[in-house]
């Protein structure tokens, strides 16, 4: 059991089929792998290979057509929406390609959201943590800027801070640098690597950029719907 203790996420024979009958697209055809605590893993694959699809399933935003996803020893495959929502809130953080901040809200308010929505209000302790996280990503001078007043790179750093807000065990990042110029992209990767080194947070980062992938401790390649070892 001691080796199980280090297992964060166990994916077993996951399939995903979109559509039905004749128009069915079999995107994932039996994906199996394990993520361990503290890892920083790159998910590599050509465009359309199913990276986003897999991340959505792992993030409990979508359900697999077949197979099993276990996280923290819990089987998430058949849990109901409310349970999954709670689970996400506590244990999973997301960074999306197009940052998707809430535009009417300030950087700090965006970062605090995952805690506030759970507690029903914006507590001082949450704001303090939010401030600390924004400081960590180098935006302590932009706390009260609206999302619309930030640059692309800045928005993505706010999104990273938000993903870390509830101290999740797993952060799923879907092409977090795909929308940034090279300098900003490297900066963001630097930041993720630092956070990973300092905390036990596990990162799974999808990308088709080899240079980005090289910054990770391990690579998982997805091809023709299966893991290509």
């Amino acid at each position: 059991m001691s080796q199980n203790h280090d297992q964060l996420l166990v994916v077993t024979d996951v399939h995903k089929v979109f559509g039905s009958e004749e128009t069915a697209t079999h995107v994932l055809k039996g994906i199996s792998f394990t993520l361990y605590r503290g890892e920083m893993v790159a998910l590599i694959g050509a465009s359309g290979s199913g990276k986003s699809t897999l991340l959505n399933i792992l993030g409990t935003l979508a359900r697999p057509s077949a197979g099993q996803v276990m996280m923290l020893g819990k089987d998430l495959t058949d849990a109901d929406d409310e349970t999954l929502t709670d689970f996400r809130n506590h244990h999973i953080g997301f960074v999306f390609q197009f940052h998707h901040l809430l535009p009417e809200f300030t950087a700090l308010e965006n970062v605090v959201f995952p805690t506030a929505v759970r507690e029903g209000r914006e507590r001082t302790t949450a704001k303090e943590r939010g401030t600390a996280l924004l400081t960590l990503v180098g935006l302590d001078d932009r706390l009260h800027y609206r999302a619309t007043q930030l640059s692309g790179g800045q928005k993505q750093r706010v999104a990273i801070a938000r993903a870390l807000m509830n101290q999740p065990e797993l952060v799923l990042a879907d092409e977090p640098t795909g929308n940034l110029d090279r300098a900003s992209a490297l900066q963001v990767m630097e930041l993720l690597a630092d956070i990973n080194a300092e905390s036990q947070t596990t990162f799974l980062i999808s990308t088709h950029d080899d240079q980005i992938a090289a910054r990770c401790s391990r690579q998982i390649v997805i091809q023709d719907g299966v893991i290509d070892a």
């Binding site: 709670d86 997301f94 959201f113």
Partner: peptide, 16 residues
């Protein structure tokens, strides 16, 4: 729509 999706991803329940 996309904001609603993000809120749901970060733990906003349907009833919220």
């Amino acid at each position: 729509r996309s904001e609603i999706g993000i809120m749901r991803a970060f733990g906003a329940k349907r009833r919220f």
